[in-house]
Design a protein around this nucleic acid. Structure first.
Lengths: 171, 171
DNA sequence: CCCAATTGCTTCGTTCGCGAACTATCTATA
DNA sequence: TATAGATAGTTCGCGAACGAAGCAATTGGG
């Protein structure tokens, strides 16, 4: 018998005040939303308490990560970046502006298509990232310490199904 | 064999460019974050395209929902509201200000404790909500249509474990 | 060829949320 | 009591993201 979380409590309240309503979808959706919020917050806090290193903000960090993981020459267009990270064009532009000002990326117009720009990590950004990535994933791993490997697998599989569907319908 | 989502793609890229890094926690965390974003967006869009009815914003809607589900007299203190919904004090104050201006809630100082205020739904808010709640949960149900009942249960159970742990450690 | 439609990205104006500082009320201790 | 500290909410200033509009560069149909 596992304990009740905030979502269970809410479900019980709905059952008492609106018994004819089927609130079961929230058992999944509300938990995802709450967890998303908590995880974002936790990662933002980790970045904010870093003394002067890299960015102080999860959105900006996501841009750097996406550029890092494609490998040398650590370059993508804003369009490719957007696909990778679920942000509006305006939002991405703002991130790139900050990152450029701080010296973590450069922007050059593409030689093949004058509308497009090439965003590229600077060597300092690559170095700083490589120094931090291990901590980053260790931090993530710690967030999941309440789940066993099998349970993680089951959750990941279920969420993949849902994500594939929602990305197709909403993204 | 299920298809690859954005998170699988990212994992493969990491494996290619940083094979020594264990990125497996992102299999769960990144999916939760992406899904959280997509679900928030979808619900915000649903509210925004409503013609003049209720609020146009998920945060404000959450406040109304929390007040509705506790049943008559549909009243809570800001402190109780905060526990229910994962928002800063300042953020909640802003929501309450908007809702009060729009006539969906009233605020009165508590008779027992002069520091505390009682937030209460107006009758119009209750009526409007009751007209909309069925649509709301139908919309949520549709978001989950790619998952069978058993799969939803498994995901919900796993996420409950994680949520209980993270709420205790971070909330 | 030409010009309209499309594409890729940025700018602008606004909204929403956060952390820190503040106000007002209540509580506990000497 | 008096007063220091805790507690409940709000205000203030700022940062980040969004939608819509704007600006180039490119593409395609006549």
């Amino acid at each position: 018998m596992s304990a009740s979380d905030a979502v269970d409590t809410a479900s019980q309240e709905w059952a008492a005040s609106c018994p004819r309503l089927d609130v079961s979808p929230s058992e999944v959706l509300a938990r995802i939303q709450r967890l998303g919020h908590l995880i974002d917050e936790a990662q933002n806090r980790r970045l904010r308490r870093r003394p002067g290193m890299l960015v102080s903000n999860l959105g900006d960090f996501d841009v750097l990560r996406a550029l890092r993981r494609v490998g040398p020459p650590y370059a993508l267009t804003p369009g490719r970046l957007r696909q990778a990270m679920l942000v509006s064009g305006a939002g991405l532009s703002g991130r790139l502006k900050r990152l450029e000002q701080e010296g973590w990326i450069t922007r050059t117009t593409s030689p093949e298509d004058g509308r497009s720009t090439i965003v590229r990590l600077t060597p300092e950004a690559v170095a700083d990232l490589d120094r931090d990535l291990e901590n980053h994933f260790a931090f993530e791993s710690d967030l999941l310490r309440s789940l066993g490997a099998d349970e993680r697998g089951r959750i990941a599989d279920g969420l993949r199904t849902l994500l594939l569907d929602l990305e197709a319908r909403l993204g």
